[in-house]
Design a protein around this nucleic acid. Structure first.
Length: 570
RNA sequence: CGGGCUGUGGCGCAGCUUGGUAGCGCACCUGCUUUGGGAGCAGGGGGUCGCCGGUUCGAAUCCGGCCAGCCCGACCA
């Protein structure tokens, strides 16, 4: 491509609305433009990168025997009603009516549709099957942010595996996980697989692939000594036990005027340190009012709460609701003697005695509370949010936290969708078996953004060559110098001949502008062609990553590029 | 949805407090000069001041409503 003919609208100044590095640089480099909140146009450069990322994913999918499909994005709402996800995902579902008043939704993901296709399978002999597609997903996200990182319309590679039994699913899951690792390595992303919550996808097991990033929205807990890694929505840790002293034979009320917080109570009443208090919170778990009990110094992890209690929608009760349910305001709440509300408690409270908690009367607390004796706990669950510095459950090492971007997620779905949508095969004994499924997603645009987050400097993007829109840029310092343009045209043809993606900067711009643009858009190698070097038959060769320039012979350019590309391609 | 903020040529901003009919830098067009790290001079084009309504002789400016976008919290690739 000749730069003079290309549409690469670079911006000299940072756009005001862009904070994340990837957002800022993709805008400035002329890769993307925003249309509305969470919706972006991919300009020519953005499109090439997107396609290169897709192609790497496609190659690795095909390598594990996956077959590419293209499924529709207009779905009858009915099918989403059937699986219950019309409600579960109601918040993010784009939904409308067609001309015949039929309810239609835009595809959020495609489990329902792939399963519908899979209903045509009849025999275990046809399994396993692995199908995938690149398709736009529409999600009316509550809060799009950071450019391509979190949007409302995006391309996802979604794959689905179909097996007769769990053993088959395990094999498929492993194979797909390995393919994902190869993909991320080729994309230049240092991804780690972590245990994750399955959320609205349903299913038993899932692994998220995360890359560490300043702008990451997820928190991963990991153990440097044994490698344990889990999303904070799922992570556990060892809790140092607290030795309780002998308490009274029944809870004893005492006045605590003005005390409203754990810290306040710990200060007010010496023996009631935070780890000897019961924190009582009121939640509506799928509209069922529930008391959630935590050790005073622990925080509840809402996703863990939802997962362990099988809840689809959870929300904290507000002040008036709390008052109506318990007769007291937050700050004096407790579960002692509460029999008409569901009570769930964190495992860290199990067996604890002589604790302090609210009395459900403003400005009064109870001391000497014995969990087993005084509180009717319906469910003991691990709902504690892990934080850095706690001991690892696996090896006792000290856990750390990382901010990460989720760049891929793979799920073991099991038979849920197959059962509802009637996808079953006859097994070797002639018995119908629901197909066991897995679901595997990668957000293409988000990966593009993640690559930029991981590969940039103060001057711009530094693309890994595997995904760079062009592998080399020929910067002609003086376009009205005939010898320079002739040499540039020759090199341009030779590089194209060698199937190397080359951008020829033949613009009538000053050198400084060209260098700055080349660095901003992040082309991995720059060949600078000017009268100075040309006098000796030489040009300058500059890798974007190091910025170190070396003079090489005109005739050596193609070889150098070939070498650079071969060194990185798998 | 809750909280904070912002809407003025393509981009970045000033003007708003104290109403008088819009300005700066970059970008763009023309010419001349310049030419290895975002050139100089001269000339020029481009704006319903987010939208609707109100107050006023007069509104970018004051008031009300709405819309959009950004950032922080509850969701996901």
């Amino acid at each position: 491509m000749r730069w003079s003919r290309a549409f690469i609208p670079t911006l000299r100044e940072d756009p005001a609305a862009a904070e994340a590095a990837s957002h800022r640089l993709l805008l400035r480099g002329g890769y993307i433009r925003q249309l509305m909140s969470g919706v972006y146009s991919l300009l020519p450069l953005g499109t090439i990168v997107h396609q290169k990322v897709e192609q790497i994913i496609r190659e690795e999918m095909n390598a594990v025997g996956a077959q590419e499909c293209i499924l529709p994005n207009l779905h009858p709402r009915e099918i989403w009603e059937k699986t219950g996800r019309a409600d579960l995902m109601a918040d993010i579902l784009f939904s409308f009516k067609d001309r015949r008043d039929g309810e239609v939704v835009l595809g959020v993901t495609h489990e329902e549709i792939f399963t519908t296709v899979a209903a045509e399978l009849t025999s275990y002999k046809q399994l396993p099957q692995v199908w995938y597609q690149f398709q736009t997903k529409f999600r009316d996200e509550p809060r799009p942010r950071a450019g391509l990182l979190r949007v409302r319309e995006f391309t996802m590679k979604d794959a689905y595996t179909f097996d007769v039994d769990d053993a088959g699913l395990d094999v498929a899951f492993q194979a797909m996980g390995a393919a994902y690792r190869r993909i991320f390595r080729r994309l230049g992303l240092d991804a780690i697989g972590v245990e994750a919550s399955s959320g609205a996808m349903g299913g038993k097991d899932s692994t998220e692939f995360m890359v560490e990033a300043e702008v990451g929205e997820d928190v991963v807990i990991h153990c440097p000594s044994c490698g344990y890694a889990a999303n904070v929505e799922r992570a556990t840790s060892a809790v140092s036990p607290v030795a309780d002293e002998e308490g009274p034979s029944e809870p004893t009320p005492f006045d605590t005027p003005g005390v409203r917080t754990i810290a306040g109570l710990a200060e007010f009443d010496e023996p009631s340190s935070a780890d000897r208090q019961i924190k009582t919170m009121v939640y509506f778990l799928d509209d069922v009012p529930t008391l959630v009990l935590m050790r005073g110094d622990h925080a509840v992890q809402e996703q863990k709460l939802m997962d362990t209690t099988g809840t689809a929608h959870a929300r904290a009760a507000d002040g008036p609701e709390v008052l109506e349910l318990l007769g007291a305001n937050p700050g004096s709440l407790g579960a002692v003697g509460v029999s008409d509300l569901r009570v769930v408690a964190d495992l860290a409270l199990q067996g604890r005695t002589n604790l302090t908690t609210g009395a459900n009367k403003d400005d009064v607390h109870l001391r000497g509370v014995d969990m087993a004796r005084d509180i009717a706990v319906a469910e003991w669950v691990d709902i504690r949010e892990v934080s850095a510095g706690e001991p690892c459950v696996e090896c006792g090492g000290t856990l750390e936290e990382k901010k990460t971007i989720e760049i891929g997620h793979i799920f073991k779905l099991g038979t849920r969708y197959a059962e509802i949508l009637g996808a079953s095969v006859l097994d070797a004994n002639g018995k119908p078996q629901p197909i066991t499924m897995g679901s595997y997603g990668i957000g293409v645009g988000r990966n593009v953004a993640a690559i930029v987050e991981a590969h940039h400097d103060e001057r711009g993007i530094v693309w890994p060559i595997a995904v760079a829109p062009y592998e080399v840029v020929l910067t002609v310092v003086k376009v009205d110098d005939e010898a320079s343009m002739t040499a540039a045209d020759t090199l341009y043809s030779q590089l194209r001949e060698a199937s190397i993606d080359v951008l020829l900067d033949d613009r009538a711009e000053r050198p400084g502008v060209k260098f700055a643009d080349a660095e901003l858009i992040g082309i991995p190698y720059r060949v600078t062609i000017g009268p100075r070097g040309l006098a000796n038959g030489e040009v300058e060769f500059t890798p974007r990553s190091t910025g170190e320039t070396e003079a090489i012979a005109l005739g050596a350019v193609v070889d150098r590029m070939r070498q650079a590309i071969d060194a990185i391609q798998p």
